[in-house]
């Protein structure tokens, strides 16, 4: 579904990703772990098409398409969803209103009719309930004044509603207490299906106790240095990045 080959990316002239290759198949959950500054979040942002990242080499295919040639909204319409580490606040735009705009924009791009209002409401309520999001939060402005946990749950709600093919979770566990972490992980696990792939980016192994990955990659210095099964995450937990990779890493 997603094929990254030798991806090289710079930010303000400084190389961050230095030849990263990765293949993610439908139905699989890939975890990417790595110390701070290893390029994890850069990877997430480049895949979603954020400005300010210069691709200096390599390619990314999403299904049959050249992902890097697409606009951010085209990537979203094609089924790529990025759950952000820091979801932005947009005052004056109601949460539900925004969600409906997004769904309809994506449906329209796929040649589908708009979602009927009743169906939309039913689905939102259903998902919100599962994620422990109250009615009041749905009515408020998009992320405005939400706590860290509320923002992350709202990201998962959007993910559930937009039904993407590829979900990228960028440090979704950061700033969450254990209960919120479990709610969010449950939300993600419910969405696992043979058609859908996940790329879970995290600093800590903790999240992977709840979202059990099929493959774990360890990133350092802009490249994937080790890949393996879920046991790799546990090994990492015991030995730390330096022990595992056998090198000293910049903090």
């Amino acid at each position: 579904m997603l094929t990254i080959e030798n991806l090289e990316v710079s930010v303000e002239g400084k190389p961050i990703l230095k030849g990263l290759s990765l293949t993610v198949e439908a139905g699989r959950v890939h975890a990417i772990m790595g110390p701070n500054g290893s390029g994890k979040s850069t990877l997430a942002h480049v895949l979603a098409g954020r400005e300010g990242y210069e691709v200096t080499g390599g390619s990314v295919r999403f299904g049959e398409e050249d992902l890097l040639a697409m606009e951010p909204e085209e990537r979203a319409q094609a089924g790529l969803f990025l759950a952000m580490q820091y979801p932005v606040e947009i005052p004056g735009v109601a949460n539900m209103y925004f969600l409906r705009q997004a769904i309809n924009a994506i449906r329209k791009a796929r040649g589908q009719d708009e979602i009927p209002a009743a169906e939309f409401m039913r689905k939102v309520r259903e998902q919100a309930k599962l994620l422990g999001i109250g009615e009041e939060l749905l009515k408020r402005d998009l992320n405005a004044g939400f706590s860290g946990g509320e923002k992350k749950r709202n990201e998962i709600l959007q993910m559930a509603m937009l039904e993407p093919r590829l979900c990228i979770l960028d440090e979704t566990d950061s700033g969450l207490d254990i209960d919120a972490l479990r709610t969010v992980a449950d939300g993600v696990n419910r969405l696992r299906s043979p058609e859908r792939a996940f790329l879970v980016i995290t600093h800590y192994q903790r999240l992977l106790d709840y979202i059990v990955p099929d493959v774990v990659h360890v990133m350092a210095d802009g490249r994937i240095r080790r890949s393996g099964g879920p046991e790799l995450a546990r090994e990492l937990e015991e030995r730390g990045y330096e022990g595992l990779l056998g090198t000293r890493l910049a903090a």
């Binding site: 098409g49 951010p72 979203a76 952000m84 947009i90 925004f98």
Partner: peptide, 17 residues
């Protein structure tokens, strides 16, 4: 970027905001 990541075009995102 947030709006566009959710599939909304840049011009629509401006109108929305």
């Amino acid at each position: 970027f947030y709006c566009r990541q959710r599939g909304i075009s840049e011009e629509d995102a401006v109108a929305l905001i």
